[in-house]
Amino acid sequence: MNVALRTSLVLIGIGIASYGAFLVLTRFGLDQIIGLAIWLAAAVVLHDFVLVPVVTLIARFAFGQKTRSLAEPGSAGSGSGFRLIPGSRRLAITRTLLVAACLISVVVVPEIVALGRGVANPTILPGDYAHNLLWLWAFVVAAVFTVLGVGLIAARLRR
């Protein structure tokens, strides 16, 4: 890859980013700059040293290591590179639904908190977001149990 091109892109990038920093340093009062610095640092600390470790622990507890053995190396003729061993499709569906529901909650929980703090007029945050989120989770949990239940029955019948 062309080193000169990459070097100039890096320099242009630094220039653009510096403009953002310049805006902060020239247009913000000292209080605001300090406040912003604290929030920037807090965002990283909360993500790297709270959120990720907690999610890592939960993921290990919930999904463990066994998921990897769900895939067997693909047979010579298979184009996909791996083939699913029995049951893995169901686990794929349930894991996808559970992780997606968690990620949706990341966006919706602050909305519920904001609504709890009160709004300036009834057209702001008009929904019952806690209720809707509970329904979403109810759907996901029901789907997970259905899929796993079907899997259990199928496994019994195969035996």
Binding site: L9, V10, G13, A17, Y19, F28, W39
Partner: peptide, 26 residues
Amino acid sequence: WPFSFRSTHYALAWVIVGSLLAHIAF
């Protein structure tokens, strides 16, 4: 937050785009 939303959202946008460009180049 203890700062102006619009000014911050705008300034951070330039910081992000610039550092993202450099990141892509690297």
